[in-house]
Write a protein that binds this DNA or RNA. Structure first.
Length: 876
RNA sequence: GGGCGCAUAGCUCAGUUGGUUCAGAGCACUUGGUUUACACCCAAGGGGUCGGGGGUUCGAAUCCCUCUGCGCCCA
């Protein structure tokens, strides 16, 4: 077979992806095998593949491919979520470009546009995942707004409502005045902003006194309904029981007392605006204060703002400053840095606002989820450090505001039939709602047209928290074959930024609806940052184009690059050089294969060195396999890769192949060739999860394979007993090789000149690897001797002394210097060991094993010192 | 302001119960190399007061206290 001289990733990758798809290797159906299941963290439909996705999905693909090789029934369910806020924002922007105002459209018309948008862009990211090599079961692709998925969401809403866990509440929420919707606390980002602290004086009613308050938001004085002082504050005893007059609007408001007020901050007098501040709302509830809402839903002032009506809050802030100043109410301003909540999506400054919202009671729901992670270990977090974060959130959980003032999403299945706060019913369909309404009102004359459905949609997370169940239709049909077989899933791979949004809530939902965890292990990846540790983001423009990277370095190269330095839970500092390293690795393996493949095989005897090399590599392979398995078991994927990388590059290519390589244009013996092929195949298996394309390609070049024999479904190597002595003996031999190479380099001895080597075998090292050493450094042979050799360069491995006789003059001075340095070092070492051993408390206190090892160190040092001294004596 | 975590080679990180293998890996760096798989290569080498200080111990990168500097989450 003709083998291309260069590995061309772009051609190879599409070829094998098509091949895998054609033979349905990604597809899973329940059978008698053990299942291994991952559900993808659904990327949202507005996205394109970014570095975070690449990392995340590479890890999932590594896990799923390994499971497949291990003979499990591997099922990776892909899909997307509808991302209500983000998508709606995109659709609104697109309509705007076309000159269409969202508010001019009916609900159905808008949704049609949203669906069009989703159909056009929603699948892009999944197509990109294919380029990365992701072996998802594409037949199972789901979307959180699919009919069956939406039905599940509605069913769950109704169920929770009927259980009394969902309620309607008038609450202070985070209002995004741009998107005109509520945000959850998690969607608000607090940013430090330079602002001003305004000191304003209010008249005290019926006196000539004034009092001064400090505020960052002077425009909210129109909503003031009290002034609050601390009852312990002696500065203000004269204000007790009095009233104050709000500037400009001249509202008379009570002066109340509460220890909540911080006497140190500002002036010690606090203006209370219950409609526009969470803390003020609490104070207001406690003291029964009036609530005055001064804003429209776009955060412009309403009629309470008097002559400012219709103007934006920030405009008003500027203008009112001037008015207050003119009227003598502005005492002073100070620079002040405060934290301002902004919308994650629209960047608008959040306005705290009172409104009707739907809430889910969390207190009882979280209990099994806390237990599962923190007590029973049913669900394990990797790295473990996130358990603390999880605990903190779960133990301080607040009710979940699940309504959003948006159209794109599942419409809340609540139907109103009157103006009373209780005049509504909740049902899966409007027909059922009608029945309920008729019963509730005792009025059978009610018709569907008397019902109005709540216009709000549900929070997107209220869909995705069901994801591991709903993708298998486990909400609608809890007994179906798929959910029974695949649930609970095995691993979840996601970012720590959505530990609460999503992971915790899935655990909660899992226990509520199946009384079982949704997954066993959660692997939390780090964030992908650039070299300067900046988060990758579109606005910074520091995120490389994912597909271009794949084009340049190959999917395998990019996968390796991403994984190489992404220790679990640590941020990954992305650098294209890492992908280059991955590509270089691919090239290395390709060439190793070309080397083997190019050999002529003959019916000749097997050299001793080759036989030993095969035995040694098999031991090394087994030893490494155990290390790799251990890394996988701890989700240390980058360590598993590095271990594989070193096995292949160092042990296989640099040592093994160099040992068995036949002389130029000479054939190789059959036994060695076959062993080399078999070893290469095993290496490919270990490497396949990381570099699926390259490995499958080489695998198929090695011999003709039927689809059943494809690498993707090959059998992962089983651990076997192995000879550990071979490994230590090899390490010793490799030190000898290094010693000789160093001498060759120092003395500029060309490799093709065979040299002599004599050894005083003080260590009684066995001769197993002698042939290997001879071959690797081109010796005439290794001779054993009892006496130091004159006119030779020397080096030592442990207490063994090696001599390389030199024809020319030996630089005696240099030799003496080298030996003296070694001697001094060893003597110093001996001294420290003996100091330890002469310490009675050490000998008495330390474990036997430790003392024994110190004694061995002492003996080794003594032996080496003797050798060194003998050499020095022979030189002098 | 409250909570959690981190600090080891130029960079990114390992280092499990305090002691064999304890100061390590990869990259980067230096030096040498056109030997017929690969210069996307081969070989050899340098490099660390384990953030500072104190303590416990026969023994500390590892345990405790403290200081400094970072990061994350929550308010």
């Amino acid at each position: 077979m003709e083998i291309p001289a260069k590995y061309d990733a772009s051609q190879v990758e599409s070829k094998w992806y098509d091949y895998w798809m054609k033979h349905k290797f990604f597809h899973s159906e329940p059978d008698e095998r053990e299942p291994y299941t991952i559900v993808i963290p659904p990327p949202n439909v507005t996205g394109v593949l970014h570095m975070g996705h690449m990392l995340n999905n590479t890890i999932q693909d590594v896990l799923i491919r390994r499971a497949r090789l291990q003979g499990k029934n591997a099922c990776w369910v892909p899909g997307t979520d509808h991302a209500s806020i983000a998508t709606e924002a995109k659709v609104v922007a697109k309509l705007k470009e076309q000159g269409i105002d969202k508010n001019d459209l009916s609900r159905d018309e808008f949704l049609k546009h949203a669906w069009d948008w989703t159909h056009e862009y929603g699948g892009v990211i999944l197509e990109q995942l294919k380029k990365l090599g992701c072996s998802c079961d594409w037949d199972r692709t789901k979307f959180t707004m699919d009919d069956d998925m939406s039905e599940s969401v509605i069913k769950v809403f109704v169920d929770l409502y009927n259980k009394g866990l969902i309620y309607r509440g008038y609450r202070m929420v985070n209002w995004d005045p741009e998107a005109k919707t509520t945000l959850s606390d998690e969607e608000v980002i607090y940013e430090e902003q330079q602002g001003l602290l305004y000191y304003l004086s209010y008249k005290v009613e019926g006196t000539n006194d004034t009092l001064t308050i400090a505020t960052t938001r002077p425009e909210t004085i129109f909503g003031d309904t009290a002034i609050c002082i601390n009852p312990n504050d002696e500065r203000f005893t004269h204000l007790r029981g009095k009233k104050a007059i709000v500037p400009i609007c001249n509202r008379v408001i009570p002066i109340i007392e509460d220890e909540y007020v911080d006497m140190e901050f500002g002036t010690g007098c606090l203006k209370v605006t219950p409609a526009h501040d969470e803390n003020d709302k609490n104070l207001g509830d406690k003291h029964n204060l009036q609530v005055v809402d001064i804003f429209n839903d776009d955060a412009s002032l309403n009629s309470f703002g008097l002559h400012y009506e219709g103007k934006d809050r920030f405009v008003v802030r500027k203008e009112i400053k001037k008015e207050l100043e003119d009227k003598g109410h502005l005492v002073k301003t100070e620079n002040y840095i405060n934290k301002v909540g902004t919308s994650e999506r629209t960047k608008a400054v959040i306005e705290p606002r009172l409104s009707d919202q739907w809430f889910l009671k969390m207190e009882d729901l979280v209990k099994p989820a806390i237990k599962a992670v923190l007590e029973d270990g049913d669900v394990k977090l990797f790295p473990k450090k996130f358990e603390n974060t999880y605990r903190h959130w779960m133990e301080n959980i607040r009710d979940w505001n699940i309504s959003r003032q948006l159209l794109w999403g599942q419409q809340i299945p609540a139907y109103y039939f009157g103006d009373g706060t209780d005049d509504f019913v909740v049902a899966e369909t409007i027909e059922e709602a009608l029945k309920l309404a008729q019963d509730k009102t005792n009025n059978q004359q009610f018709t569907i047209s008397d019902l109005t459905q709540d216009t709000d949609a549900l929070d997107t997370w209220f869909s995705s928290w069901l994801w591991p169940m709903s993708v298998f239709d486990g909400i609608r049909y809890p007994e179906n074959k798929d959910i029974q077989y695949y649930y609970p899933t095995n691993d979840l791979v996601t970012g720590p930024d959505i530990l609460f949004f999503w992971v915790a809530r899935m655990i909660i939902a899992g226990y509520e609806y199946r009384n079982e965890k949704p997954f066993e292990n959660v692997y939390l990846t780090g964030l992908v940052r650039d070299k300067q540790r900046r988060k990758m983001s579109k606005s910074l423009g520091n995120s490389p184009d994912a597909l271009k990277l794949i084009e340049e370095f190959g999917a395998d190269g990019v996968r390796v690059g991403l994984l190489l330095s992404s220790a679990a839970g640590n941020d990954l500092l992305f650098d294209e050089a890492l992908c280059q390293q991955g590509k270089g690795f691919a090239n290395k393996i390709w060439n190793a294969f070309r080397l083997i493949q190019g050999w002529d095989v003959a019916d000749i005897g097997q050299p001793q060195s080759s036989k030993i090399a095969i035995d040694w590599f098999e031991a090394k392979f087994q030893d490494t396999l155990l290390v790799i398995e251990d890394h996988y078991s701890k989700y240390r994927i980058s360590d598993a890769l590095m271990e594989t990388y070193k096995l292949i590059w160092n042990d296989f290519c640099s040592w093994f192949l160099e040992i068995i390589k036949p002389e130029y244009q000479k054939p190789i013996d059959k036994a060695t060739y076959e062993a080399a092929i078999s070893i290469l195949e095993n290496n490919l298996k270990l490497l396949h999860p990381f570099m699926p394309f390259l490995t499958e390609d080489i695998w198929q070049y090695i011999s003709e394979r039927t689809p059943e024999e494809a690498l993707i479904v090959a059998k992962w190597p089983n651990p076997k007993a192995y000879n550990k002595d071979l490994l230590t003996e090899f390490d010793f031999a490799s030190e000898v090789v290094s010693g000789i190479r160093t001498i060759r380099k120092q003395k500029n001895i060309p490799f093709k000149d065979a040299i002599q080597c004599l050894v005083i075998n003080n260590e009684d090292a066995n001769t197993t690897f002698d042939e290997v050493i001879v071959k690797l450094v081109n010796l005439e042979g290794i001779q054993y001797t009892d006496e130091a050799v004159d006119g030779a360069l020397t080096f030592r491995v442990k207490s063994n002394e090696y001599f390389i006789p030199m024809a020319g003059a030996i630089d005696v001075e240099a030799e003496i210097k080298k030996l003296t340095e070694e001697l001094q070092y060893t003597e110093g070492f001996l001294k420290s060991v003996q100091k330890k051993l002469s310490n009675e408390r050490f000998v008495a206190g330390a474990p036997e094993q430790v003392v024994a090892s110190e004694k061995k160190k002492e003996a080794d040092a003594l032996a080496k010192i003797e050798t060194l001294k003998a050499s020095l004596a022979s030189l002098n």
